[in-house]
Amino acid sequence: MAELVSERVNAAEQRPVAPVEAWSADLVTRSGYAFHVRPASPNDEAALAEFFTHVDKEDLRFRFLSAIQKVGHDQLKALVMVDHQRTENFLAIEPETGLIVATAMLAADETLTNAEVAVAIRADFKRGGISWTLLDHVARFAVSKGIRTVESMESRDNHEAIELERERGWTASACPGDPTVMVLRKKIDATHA
């Protein structure tokens, strides 16, 4: 699929379509909620800063695995200045308002074999299936890159995320050296994405 994406041509302009553009999509959750997803760009820093003010404090702690009150410039920069090869940050956008409602970052190792994913969602958009649908999109992207294993580091207290991932076929194990963290892992291939 990656070869097809890089070879696609925009007929109107007769130039290759950037792979980043190819990963923009309109998605629909199991509950019928429609949203747009696209890779983040440097222009999204202010909108992401606003987004994180609507994420529960406890979810911020789970997402960043530390007790933070506000997502700072350096953290935001890491979310928007990605290489789009080993690292990608997907933004779920509410189509009517343009608000960022969720984000899912994937960071792969140098061999593009294993990757870690981290998801955050606005408090007022939880429980609508956005996280599941976004994780499926991330899995398709990972498969296109040849990534075979995706991991998520979760606080043991984040029962909601752990349960979500288990329902999606992830396995949980203790994190060596840190009893407060669980490692959730899923092997993926083209049939699972």
Score class of each variant (00 low, 15 high):
Lys57Thr: 13
Thr53Lys: 14
Glu3Gly: 04
Ala34Phe: 07
Thr53Asn: 08
His159Asn: 09
Thr87Pro: 01
Leu99Asp: 12
Thr149Val: 13
Trp132Lys: 15
Glu96Gly: 04
Leu4Gln: 15
Arg15Ser: 12
Val80Cys: 10
Ile68Val: 15
Leu48Asn: 01
Asp178Pro: 04
Leu184Cys: 15
Ala2Asn: 12
Leu79Lys: 03
Asp26Ser: 15
Pro176Ser: 04
Ser31Phe: 06
Ala18Asp: 02
Leu4Gly: 15
Ala47Glu: 06
Arg61Gly: 09
Ile68Cys: 04
His137Asp: 03
Met81His: 15
Thr180Asp: 14
Asp44Ala: 08
Leu164Tyr: 06
Lys187Met: 11
Arg30Pro: 03
Leu135Thr: 02
Leu60Ala: 00
Ile162Arg: 04
Asp44His: 05
Ala12Asp: 11
Thr29Lys: 08
Ile162Gly: 02
Leu27Gly: 08
Ala161Val: 13
Ala120Met: 06
Thr191Ser: 15
Ile121His: 00
Asp26Val: 14
Val101Ser: 01
Leu60Phe: 02
Arg168Trp: 01
Arg168Val: 00
Ile162Met: 12
Leu91His: 01
Ala47Ile: 00
Ala108Gln: 01
Asp136Gln: 11
Thr113Arg: 11
Cys175Ala: 13
Thr180Met: 07
Glu58Phe: 13
Asp189Phe: 05
Leu134Thr: 08
Trp23Met: 05
Ala139Asp: 06
Asp189Ser: 11
Pro176Gly: 04
Glu96Asn: 12
Thr113Phe: 13
Arg63Gly: 04
Thr29Val: 13
Ala104Glu: 01
Lys186Gly: 01
Ala46Gln: 09
Ala78Glu: 05
His36Ser: 07
Glu163Gly: 05
Met1Pro: 09
Ala11Val: 09
Ser41Gln: 12
Arg185Ala: 12
Ile147Asn: 00
Val101His: 02
Arg38Trp: 02
Ser31His: 03
Val150Pro: 02
Ala102Tyr: 00
Thr180Leu: 04
Ala120Ile: 13
Leu65Ile: 11
Asp189Cys: 08
Ala120Lys: 03
Asn89Gln: 04
Arg15Ala: 12
Val183Gln: 10
His36Phe: 13
Leu48Glu: 00
Thr171Lys: 15
Leu4Ile: 14
